[in-house]
Amino acid sequence: MGGAGQNGPSIRRAPDGAQAGPQGLSTTFRRETLRIAEARRVAVEYLAASQRGSEHPVSERATDAVQLVVSELITNAVKYGRGLIELTLSRTGDTLTVTVRDGGTTLPVTRSADPGRVGQHGLEIVAALSQSLEIRPEAAGKRVTALIALR
C-alpha cells in the first residue's frame, strides 16, 4: 500500500448552508508501510480544503507548524505504538485539532527541556507549537491530541 491510508481519507463536510470546506478528516495508516511524509501531505491537503471560501487563509507558518506536529505525533505512534495508526484532523474557526491514535498502551511522556539530550524532543516540540496537548489511554490503546492556532 506504500503508506497510503488503509481505506483512504474519510472527509466530513458541512451540511448545506454551513461553513464551506471539510469539517474533519480521518484516515488510518498501517504502521509497517506508513511514510511520515504521507501523513504530512494529508494534513496539508486538508488545510487547503478547509480554507476554501474562508476570509482568513492559513499562514505558511501555521501550515509548517501543523506539518511538524503531525510528523512528530505520527513518528511517535510508528516508533512506540502498535497496530493501525489513525490520524484525525478537525478545524473549528482558527483552531486545528490533530489527533493520533494507535493500539499501544504505553503513554508518551513529556520531558522537561534539556538541550544536552539527544533525541526524544518530539512531544516537547509538539507542546511548544500547540495551544494544548492531551495524552489519554483508550480501551484500544492511546490517543494524543494537539490543538494548534492557525492565525
Rank of each mutant, 00 (worst) to 15 (best):
G2R: 12
G3S: 15
G3Y: 05
G3R: 14
A4M: 08
G5H: 06
G5A: 14
G5P: 04
N7K: 07
G8D: 12
P9L: 12
R12M: 05
R13P: 00
A18D: 10
P22N: 11
Q23H: 10
L25N: 06
S26Q: 14
S26P: 00
S26C: 12
T27H: 03
T28E: 02
F29R: 05
R30F: 11
R30C: 05
R30L: 10
R31Q: 12
I36P: 02
A37Q: 04
E38I: 00
E38C: 06
R40M: 07
R41C: 00
V42R: 03
A43H: 01
E45G: 11
L47S: 06
A48W: 01
A48F: 01
S50P: 05
Q51V: 09
G53S: 07
G53H: 11
S54H: 10
E55K: 06
H56M: 09
E60F: 07
A62Y: 09
D64N: 15
A65T: 06
Q67R: 13
V69R: 11
V70A: 03
E72I: 13
L73T: 03
I74L: 14
N76D: 06
A77P: 01
K79G: 02
K79R: 15
Y80V: 01
L84Q: 08
L84N: 06
E86H: 07
E86D: 09
T88I: 04
L89T: 04
L89E: 04
S90V: 07
T92W: 03
V98M: 08
D102H: 10
T105H: 07
L107S: 00
P108F: 01
T110K: 07
R111Y: 04
D114K: 06
P115Y: 08
G116E: 13
Q120M: 03
Q120N: 10
G122E: 02
G122D: 08
I125H: 02
A127N: 12
A127H: 07
A127L: 01
L129K: 05
Q131R: 15
L133K: 06
L133V: 15
R136T: 14
P137K: 15
E138C: 02
A139E: 11
A140E: 14
G141N: 04
G141L: 10
R143L: 15
V144H: 08
A146S: 15
A149Y: 01
